[in-house]
Each structure stands twice: as structure tokens, then as C-alpha cells.
Amino acid sequence: MLPRLLAALRSQRFGVLAGFAAAFFLALGTVVMDLAPEAYAGLSLDDMRPFFREPRLVHFWFYGLALAVALWGASALVCTWDSVRTRLRHRVRRVSAYGAPLFHVAFVLALFAHLHNGLGESTAARVVGSDWTAIGDARYRLADLTVTTSPSGMPRDIRAHLERDRAGQVDTVDVAYNAPLVADVGAHALLLGRPIERPLAVLRVVGERRRLAIGDRVGAFVLTRVLQSRSLRAPMAELQFDGEPSPRWLPLTPGAGPSELVAFVGIDRERAVLLTERVNPAAPLVVVVALVAALATVLVVWEHLWRARRRARRAAVSGETPAPAVEDAIALG
């Protein structure tokens, strides 16, 4: 059984057909996703979990793709192993001759990276204003926001200057479009979404005036909502107290006296930035894949040029041009 499977994987026909099948299933997938968008509502960025969490018939193209790609990857590995052995046996010392095998290795690693990230990635929206906001293992607050515009008024660059507090060590970092804050070889990234004006609830807590954003905690409660609409005569703040099953609504009481424990006295606004926190567990592997694939591409191109030069020399000597496939078979060794 195993020798037969290896023989099948080793055949170039198998690899080529698996490649075309993968392209076909992927193309089919775009049509299915476009025709049935409701089946893919939870799919974002490179997430693959919905395909496995809720197996559905409509995802048939993805399962076909996964099978085709897995077989292609296995075939690429087996063929690469064979071709490297052949080259070593023939003592091929040209580095460029190993470009294609290297490219195949990068391809298989890229497949693993896609799977790993597709099953482990995460995205979370974060709002950072003038107060400290915990993101990952640090706290951030907005120190300044600079917007550079062209003479026509189109923004050229939007840059958020953040103060970062890591275990008491405070430094300043910038986040801008195409310039995220990256850590752990890209596994963690903080990206600029857009600048916003966020509402703040002004509360008097035991006589002390506090400005709270949604999600901020003071003692035993968290601010969960601020309602402000034309249909309401006055804004309202919603607080969730620890141990209580439902939240409490506080009406606006601008003249709240110091005797009240918690009072909602107004709404304020502040400049903030919407950030995206991305976790890409496969990022370090992807960096390796990108470097290996780029190097392998350069080597493959070099090898192609070397063969073309040799072909031209042979043609000049013999006066005829060999067929491409024959020529490549000769070069393979």
C-alpha cells in the first residue's frame, strides 16, 4: 500500500493534477462565497475555523481544496526529496540547481503556516484615549495624534503617538497606517484603525469627579453603555455592579450632591484612536517562508537563465534547437 502511494505521489502527473484541482476548488469557492454570503458571515481575514467548526455542504469546495492542497504538498515533498537525491548523486554543485527544491519546501511550509494561522489567529478592536488601556502585556494611552494632509486636503499620513507602560517602564511608540506596532516576530501586532471622538460619561463617585469610557471600571462597577439620542430627553449611563444580575440605569443628574455615592453628571468627548489587536501565531514561520521563497525564486530564475545560456551555446554548436522538455530533462541530470 505504502509503496503504491509513494509511487503515485512521486509521479509528476499526480502533482500537476493536484495543482490544477486546487486552483479549480479555490476558484469555485469564490463563486460560492459570492452567491451564498450568509454562509460566510463569520469569516474574516484568514480565519479557517468556521469551515471546521460548522461543517456544511456549502463548504464542499474548501474540503476539496484542503484535500487537493494536502496531496499536492505531499507530492511536492516526495518529488523534492527525489530530485535532491538525484542532484546529490550526480554531484551537482550549482547552488541554483537547488532553487526549485527550496521553493517546494517553502510552499509546503506556507501551507502549514496558513493552516496554523487560520486556526489560531485572533482580531480584537481596542480604543485608546487619554486614559491607560491594557492591551496584551502593556498599557497604552494616546499622547498625540498627527494628521499630515496634501494641498488638496487628502490625508497623507495619520500617526498616533502612544505612551506605553510595560511593568512600570514608560516609553513612547507610534502607530500609523502601514506602520503597525509589532512584537514577537510579527505574532502580535497593533494596527491603526482610525481616529475617533469617543463619548465619556462624567460620574461623581463618592464626591470625586471621574471621566469614564465604556468598559472602564471603578471599584465595584463597570460603565457598560451611554445612551444619548433625540428620543431621550436626557442622556443615560448604564452601570453593571458586581454581583448584580442586571445593569443599573442612571439618569443625568447634573446637580448631584456630594452625598450620593454614584451620580451621572454629564457627557464629555475626547480624541481617541481605534486600534486593531492582531495575533498571528504563524507570523514567525511566515517570515521564514517569505525569505526562503524569495531566495528560492532568485535561484530558480538564475537556473533558468543558466539553462537558456547553455541552450543557446548548444544551438550555436549544433545548429538546431532542442525541444524545451528534453532540454530540461538533460539539466535535471
Binding site: 462565497m33 460566510y40 481575514l45 484568514d46 489567529e121 497606517y177 503597525p180 501586532a189 494596527l191 492582531r278
Partner: peptide, 11 residues
Amino acid sequence: GYVAWGAWFLW
């Protein structure tokens, strides 16, 4: 894609 959206591939 990574520096703009935090992902090198999108559906």
C-alpha cells in the same frame, strides 16, 4: 497585507 490589515491573506 500584514502591515495594512495585520494579515497576509484575506478571504
